Lab assay of single mutants.
Amino acid sequence: EHKIILYENPNFTGKKMEIIDDDVPSFHAHGYQEKVSSVRVQSGTWVGYQYPGYRGLQYLLEKGDYKDSSDFGAPHPQVQSVRR
């Protein structure tokens, strides 16, 4: 199983989107239009992308907690697509 939770604010606060065993080419299409400032990967390895359609900067997200976007190497809290 692959499970990831994306949070609007640092330290796992604010609006969140939970994804289980699915690739998401556009967070906006899924109704999530917030920034991504923290991430909790509960299982599996994911790649987050700066822009929709798996474009832009890529961020490797392995199991663990990323309490701020800088923890996974993002210069800005901008992640708009993700895949396993």
Rank of each mutant, 00 (worst) to 15 (best):
Glu1Asp: 02
His2Ala: 05
Ile4Leu: 11
Ile4Arg: 00
Ile5Lys: 15
Ile5Cys: 09
Ile5Asn: 00
Ile5Tyr: 15
Ile5Trp: 13
Ile5Glu: 08
Leu6Gln: 02
Leu6Arg: 01
Tyr7Ala: 00
Tyr7Glu: 03
Glu8Lys: 05
Glu8Gly: 08
Glu8Asn: 08
Asn9Glu: 11
Asn9Trp: 09
Asn9Phe: 07
Asn11Val: 06
Phe12Arg: 12
Phe12Lys: 01
Phe12Ala: 11
Thr13Ile: 08
Lys15Thr: 14
Lys15His: 12
Lys16Asn: 00
Met17Gly: 00
Glu18Lys: 03
Ile19Tyr: 01
Ile19Phe: 00
Ile19Cys: 03
Ile20His: 10
Ile20Arg: 06
Ile20Ser: 13
Asp21Gln: 07
Asp22Ala: 11
Asp22Arg: 12
Asp22Trp: 04
Asp23Leu: 00
Asp23Asn: 04
Val24Asn: 03
Pro25Trp: 05
Pro25Asn: 12
Pro25His: 07
Ser26His: 11
Ser26Cys: 08
Ser26Phe: 13
Ser26Arg: 06
His28Val: 13
His28Lys: 09
His28Met: 14
His28Asp: 08
Ala29Cys: 10
His30Arg: 15
His30Cys: 10
His30Gly: 09
Gly31Asn: 09
Gly31Pro: 10
Gly31Leu: 08
Tyr32Asn: 12
Tyr32Thr: 09
Tyr32Gln: 13
Tyr32Lys: 14
Gln33Gly: 15
Gln33His: 15
Gln33Arg: 12
Glu34Val: 12
Glu34Gly: 13
Lys35Met: 05
Lys35Arg: 11
Lys35Gln: 10
Lys35Ala: 13
Val36Arg: 01
Val36Lys: 01
Ser37Glu: 11
Ser37Pro: 09
Ser37Asp: 10
Ser37Leu: 10
Ser38His: 05
Ser38Gln: 02
Ser38Cys: 13
Val39Asn: 05
Val39Cys: 09
Arg40Val: 07
Arg40Met: 05
Arg40Glu: 06
Arg40Lys: 15
Val41Asp: 03
Val41Glu: 03
Val41Pro: 03
Ser43Ile: 03
Ser43Arg: 09
Ser43Leu: 08
Ser43Glu: 11
Gly44Met: 00
Thr45Gln: 11
Thr45Ile: 10
Thr45Lys: 04
Thr45Leu: 06
Thr45Glu: 08
Trp46His: 03
Trp46Met: 02
Trp46Thr: 02
Trp46Ile: 02
Trp46Tyr: 01
Val47Cys: 06
Val47Tyr: 11
Val47Thr: 04
Gly48Leu: 15
Gly48Asn: 06
Gly48Phe: 08
Gly48Ser: 08
Tyr49Val: 03
Tyr49Phe: 05
Gln50Val: 00
Gln50Asp: 01
Tyr51Asn: 13
Pro52Tyr: 00
Pro52Met: 04
Pro52Ser: 10
Gly53Asp: 10
Gly53Ser: 03
Gly53Leu: 15
Tyr54Glu: 06
Arg55Tyr: 05
Arg55Leu: 06
Leu57Gly: 12
Leu57Trp: 09
Leu57Glu: 15
Gln58Tyr: 08
Gln58Gly: 07
Tyr59His: 00
Tyr59Gly: 03
Tyr59Cys: 11
Leu60Gln: 07
Leu60Val: 10
Leu61Phe: 13
Leu61Met: 13
Leu61Arg: 00
Lys63Cys: 10
Gly64Asp: 08
Gly64Val: 00
Asp65Arg: 03
Tyr66Lys: 07
Tyr66Met: 03
Tyr66Ala: 06
Lys67Val: 11
Lys67His: 09
Lys67Met: 14
Lys67Asp: 06
Lys67Leu: 13
Asp68Ser: 13
Asp68Cys: 09
Asp68Met: 13
Ser69Thr: 13
Ser69Ala: 13
Ser69Asp: 11
Ser69Leu: 14
Ser70Thr: 14
Ser70His: 14
Ser70Tyr: 04
Ser70Arg: 11
Asp71Asn: 14
Asp71Gly: 12
Ala74Phe: 05
Ala74Lys: 12
Ala74Met: 06
Ala74Gly: 13
His76Val: 13
His76Cys: 14
His76Gly: 09
Pro77Tyr: 09
Pro77Phe: 14
Pro77Glu: 14
Gln78Arg: 09
Gln78Glu: 08
Gln78Trp: 07
Val79Lys: 07
Val79Asp: 14
Val79Trp: 03
Val79Met: 04
Arg84Ala: 02
Arg84Tyr: 01
Arg84Glu: 15
Arg84His: 03
